[in-house]
């Protein structure tokens, strides 16, 4: 992929980020409820409310407020939490590694499971193993991650006693044990995603193997395995990459739920508590960060796409 195209995509990504931040800010500006009242309580005098509004800048025009919010946000100043009275940035920075670790772990599991299984299935298409995996896949796809988490807790925690249910260990205390504990939620999240991507990879390989260029490859004297690995796989990857990008974003956002199952104090925990406390600066910050992560992932997928499929990177 040439540099010009990447720069173009990059600019496009920045514009989308801008739009996302604007939508979030707009949404929180028009929802009913006065942040000042939230902060001081309903018993506050009108004078003190007005003073606070002035101090918080709520009386300034909308676009001015947006601009100053955006500028300080980019600088890392995400405001102050209403309920904890501490900088939002610090709160998030504390929790981000936990959620990030789980996301990366889960994504790695998806990758490790998907490729060998998908290729194996396609190669032995119609065989016993293939049929078994197809059925297993169909069921696994339907397991919601939080129920998968509960099942894992029951099987590995209660029955096999491999870990202590709810016994989260902070990464600052013991990193190895933390990692070990995080594997279980990661597996719970990875299972349905891996099942879906195996299904996609398998059917994509089978569809590509029917195409004319595969026939050409056979006419050159390639073995079935060579045709699969050297010709078909790269083409079959194209839709899978898109799916994996979406899956990564989904895992990241879905961590909110799985953290509840395993009692992990990550981003999900602060998001939930700040939603119920109407702690808007925190909610806004997390929303913008999560959406930005999704947009950045999409950008990376686009670039990977260009590497796999030269047709995309063509300068048209």
């Amino acid at each position: 992929m040439n540099a010009k195209k990447i720069i173009k995509k990059f600019i496009f990504m920045l514009l989308t980020l801008l739009l996302v931040s604007f939508l979030v800010f707009l949404a929180f500006a028009i929802i009913p409820g006065d942040p000042a009242v939230h902060k001081l309580g309903t018993q506050a005098t009108p004078e003190s409310l007005e003073a606070l509004r002035e101090e918080m800048g709520l009386n300034r025009p909308f676009f001015e407020r947006y601009a100053s919010w955006l500028v300080s946000f980019v600088k890392g100043d995400m405001g102050v939490s209403y309920s904890y009275n501490m900088p939002v940035g610090d709160m998030i920075l504390d929790k981000l590694p936990i959620t990030l670790t789980m996301t990366v772990l889960a994504f790695c599991f998806v990758l490790i499971i998907t490729f060998p299984t998908g290729i194996l299935c396609a190669k032995h298409n119609g065989g016993k193993l293939d049929r078994f995996i197809v059925i297993l896949n169909q069921i696994m796809m339907s397991v919601p991650s939080f129920f998968g988490g509960i099942l894992i807790t029951i099987i590995f925690g209660v029955v096999l006693k491999l870990f202590m249910p709810g016994g989260y260990i902070s990464y600052t205390k013991n990193f190895v044990k933390f990692l070990g504990y995080m594997c279980f939620p990661a597996i719970a999240v990875a299972i349905p995603k891996a099942a879906m991507s195996i299904k996609l990879l398998r059917s994509s390989i089978l569809a590509e193997a029917e195409k004319d260029y595969a026939r050409t490859a056979y006419s050159h004297g390639n073995t079935t395995g060579d045709v699969l690995i050297h010709h078909v796989l790269q083409n079959a990857m194209i839709p899978v990459v898109t799916f994996l990008g979406m899956a990564l974003a989904d895992i990241f956002a879905g961590s909110i739920i799985i953290e509840q199952v395993f009692n992990i104090p990550g981003m999900g925990r602060i998001l939930l508590s700040s939603i119920s406390n109407r702690d808007y600066p925190v909610v806004m910050a997390i929303l913008v960060l999560l959406a930005s992560a999704v947009i950045i992932i999409n950008f990376i997928v686009d670039i990977v796409y260009g590497i796999i499929d030269p047709r995309v990177s063509q300068d048209d």
Binding site: T16, L19, V20, L23, A27, I31, G33, A249, D250, A253, G254, I256, I257, L271, I275, S276, R278, V283, L287, L290, A291, S292, V294, I295, N298
Partner: peptide
């Protein structure tokens, strides 16, 4: 479509979570 693109950047459960939380 640009707005839809931006909205799609929020995983749907997250969007619903915020709407309902507010």
């Amino acid at each position: 479509m640009r707005i839809m693109d931006a909205l799609l950047a929020f995983p749907s459960i997250l969007l619903a979570l915020v709407i309902i939380g507010l």
